[in-house]
């Protein structure tokens, strides 16, 4: 059995010495080391030999296999080093092949980004109808008919009348309408973040739109306090606007919260010195918030003696306007691709 092995070894090494390209190397590899090679067949045939012979032959066969493999590796290296490199010149300054690149709308990006900040704090995204009953948009939020706070929210009404000639269907004027629905439909503990379109009957200009986006939010549980509200919103401001921004909380009025809060950040343009963007105040209002009014909770079936809650709401378009320095809100919905592709 040893004899054919030695013969195979001699032939194989001799052949290998004459090879100088990788294609022949591969043929050689298949012939001498492949699954159907002589060596493999010898190794397979070992089982039929007497024990002593099997041991000797097996050992030798494996030695030869190792030797051939080493020889192959060495040859591969030699062949590759010897192979001539084709000196093809390319102009590496030519542009790469363009891939089609799509962009999400800056408002979508903003909604996602703000949503993700709150999701990471345990809030859950909830949506609601844009065409809404007057009740959820106003009454449920402590804004009955003829409430003066309604004056600042000119309403678009749907051409629909009940049998009693009432017109109770409107386009929601504030994202807080979703909050009213959440309070009514979910049981504490609650943490929700509520993005969506809102509508106002207003003329459009560089800073006003009749259709825009709000993000509202709500937390209801036992033991939620105003310092939690400050902490949560401060964390949002820090993460969205950056570590270096100053944040200010001041008293403000919204019918559905008490105490009411307005959060502002120091102006991104003048850093608080006062400029045109911030109306010389140094501060830019970012959102309204407060401890949810006990009547609003009670109306939605949550006992304000047991649970406390905070709520907040913000205009969305303002956020990318501040961050990117966009000076005309109409650009978002003008759908000019030269604008949209920048984000």
């Amino acid at each position: 059995m040893l004899e054919p092995l030695e013969e195979l070894r001699v032939n194989a090494l001799k052949e290998l010495g004459g090879i100088n390209n990788s294609k022949e190397l591969e043929t050689w590899r298949v012939r001498y080391l492949g699954k159907k090679s002589g060596l493999t067949q010898i190794l397979r045939g070992l089982a039929s030999l007497p024990l002593e012979e099997r041991k000797t032959a097996g050992a030798r066969a494996n030695e030869i296999k190792a030797e051939l493999q080493m020889g192959l590796s060495a040859s591969i290296e030699v062949v590759h080093r010897r192979a001539p490199v084709r000196e093809e010149q390319i102009d590496i300054t030519l542009p790469g092949r363009p891939l089609p690149i799509g962009h999400l709308h800056p408002i979508t990006q903003t909604l996602d980004e703000i949503g993700d900040i709150f999701i990471s704090m345990g809030f859950q995204v909830v949506e609601g109808p844009e065409v809404e009953w007057e009740y959820y948009n106003f009454e449920a939020l402590n804004m009955p008919a003829e409430h003066p706070a309604r004056d600042s929210q000119s309403t678009l009404w749907v051409d629909y009348e009940t049998e009693r000639a009432e017109r109770p269907m409107l386009l929601r004027t504030q994202g807080t309408a979703i909050t009213a629905r959440v309070i009514e439909s979910m049981a504490p503990p609650i943490r929700t973040i509520e993005p969506g379109r809102v509508y106002r009957r207003e003329a459009t200009d560089a800073t006003h739109l009749s259709i825009y986006h709000n993000i509202d939010g709500l937390a209801v549980d036992k033991g939620i306090t105003m310092v939690d509200l400050k902490g949560t919103l401060y964390e949002f401001a820090r993460r969205y606007f950056g570590e270096e921004r100053k944040v200010r909380f001041r008293c403000d009025y919204f019918p559905f919260v008490e105490p009411g809060v307005e959060m502002a950040i120091d102006c991104l343009v003048c850093n608080g010195a006062g400029c045109r963007l911030c109306g010389n105040s140094g501060w830019i209002e970012v959102l309204g918030a407060g401890m949810t009014h006990p009547e609003v909770l009670r109306r939605g079936g949550i006992d304000p003696e047991v649970y406390t809650s905070f709520a907040f709401g913000m205009g969305v378009e303002r956020m990318p306007m501040l961050r990117y320095g966009i000076d005309d809100i109409r650009l978002f919905y003008g759908s000019d691709l030269r604008f949209l592709r920048q984000f």
Partner: peptide, 30 residues
């Protein structure tokens, strides 16, 4: 709550500390 707002605004909202919500995160069913 109306009185509490009066107390808070006279003392100053900026004088209140800030903390993160400490309650367990509610169940999520988006």
């Amino acid at each position: 709550v109306d009185l509490i707002e009066e107390v808070a605004r006279i003392i100053g909202y900026d004088r209140l500390p800030t903390t993160m919500l400490s309650q367990p995160i509610p169940r999520q069913n988006p």
